[in-house]
Each structure stands twice: as C-alpha cells, then as structure tokens.
C-alpha cells in the first residue's frame, strides 16, 4: 500500500506530488466505504470529485445539459463499481476519471450522427461562470505543474493529445485534423502521454 514505487511499470498507489486537494488515500477510503453501501462516504467522494468530473464531461461533450447527464452516469458507475477499484493498479483519481472520460467520449460520438458537435457547441457555449471557490481549490500548484509539463511536449504531441482527450476524436481523426500521415497520431499521443507521465512522476 505504501511502497513508494513499484519497480517495473506498476503504478504507485500514492503519488503525493500529484495528489489533488483530497489525497489519493482519502479518495480510496471513500471508495472503499462506498463499496459497502455508505452513501455518506459517497457524498464526500462527490464533493471531492464533482468539479473534475463535471469539468471533464463539459470539456468533452460541451453541451452543459448533456455533460450533466454524463457526469451523473459516471457517478452512478463509480458507485456501483467502487468495490472493484484496485489501488494496486492505479490511483483512485485516474480510475474515476477514466470512467468519466469513456462515457463522455461515447456520448459525443453517438450524438455525432444526430447533431454536429460544432453546432451544439456554438448554441450552448454561453460561458458558464467560473466558480471562484472551485477555481481556488483547483488552480494551485498542481495546475501550474501540469501546464508546465504540457509545455515540454512538442506542439504536435500536445495538440494531438488535447484533440484526442478533450475533443474526443479518434487517433485517425486527429491525424486527419493535423494533416499527419495516418497512423502517426497514435504515436504522438502516446509520446505526449509518456512525457507528461514522466515529467509529473506518476504511474511508473
């Protein structure tokens, strides 16, 4: 549990350098209790995670109403799957955000056929007021470190990664958007993630 680092490419359960407002240990504890049906613990988990969960959903699906649905679905899944979170395999933060991201991407892709994302983006893009409290909680050192780490990526790596992660595009679409030969965007995305991982000292 508290081994500082696993040797190979394992994921260290605690990565203090990047622990957000709530430490990984606390989040893991909330998850554990949630798995036993403790709704209060889940409430605390919600408090700790809602800005990130909703923020990620909005970044990907863009439409606030749909983002709220995605966030709700993701929270339900986190609740139901809480007992299957394995701290040996990764941080609670990554586990939860992976769930959210997958749902957001699925939503944006399945919605695509009906309405072009750009349309709904322009229609619904009334700036959602930034909340000062959330801002303060988030935008500390951590955000600056991540931005600094992102600045070490090549422009193409960064753009490919952001189009994939926040845009919800497939690597093939990313290649096309960036005018890269098919098959190279996936490498840029991977290289970018590896650099981000190594700069931030997470996950191996």
């Amino acid at each position: 549990m508290t081994e500082p680092r696993q040797s190979v490419a394992g994921v260290s359960p605690e990565t203090p350098a990047t622990a957000p407002a709530d430490s990984h240990a606390e989040l893991a504890e909330h998850l554990q209790r949630s798995a036993r049906g403790d709704q209060q613990a889940f409430g605390r988990l919600y408090e700790a995670m809602s800005a990130r969960v909703y923020g990620l959903a909005v970044r990907v699906v863009r439409d606030p109403a749909q983002a709220e649905e995605v966030a709700q679905e993701a929270f339900l899944e986190i609740w139901r799957m809480a007992g299957r979170f394995d701290p040996e395999r990764g941080s609670p933060l990554a586990w939860m955000l992976t769930i959210v991201h997958r749902k957001a991407v699925d939503r944006v892709r399945s919605a695509e056929a009906a309405t072009r994302r750009d349309t709904s983006y322009h229609q619904h893009n009334q700036p959602v007021a930034h909340d000062a409290t959330a801002e303060a909680a988030h935008a500390g050192l951590e955000a600056r470190r991540v931005r600094a780490a992102l600045n070490t990526l090549t422009p193409v790596q960064r753009e490919a990664l952001e189009l994939a992660y926040f845009g919800g595009y497939t690597h093939t679409e990313v290649a096309s958007l960036l005018g890269l030969p098919v098959g190279t965007a996936k490498t840029r995305i991977r290289d970018g993630l590896i650099r981000l991982r190594d700069t931030m000292g997470v996950g191996g």
Binding site: A9, G10, V11, T15, T18, P20, S50, A51, R52, Y54, G55, L56, V58, R59, R89, G90, S91, L93, A94, L97, T98, H101, V128, H130, D131, T133, A134, E135, A137, H138, A139, E142, A143, V146, R147, A149, L150, L161, E162, Y165, F166, R190, L193, I194, L196, R197, M200, V202, G203, G204
Partner: peptide
C-alpha cells in the same frame, strides 16, 4: 495504467468549472 494516470492530470490544466 500508467498513461491513464498521466491522462487524468489533463483536466487540471483546464479552467475548472463547478
């Protein structure tokens, strides 16, 4: 798994929304 850890940091770089 390690790359998902990295990816989960990306949201920190975005302006937060509550």
């Amino acid at each position: 798994a390690s790359l998902e850890e990295a990816a989960s940091l990306l949201i920190e770089s975005a302006s937060p929304l509550s």
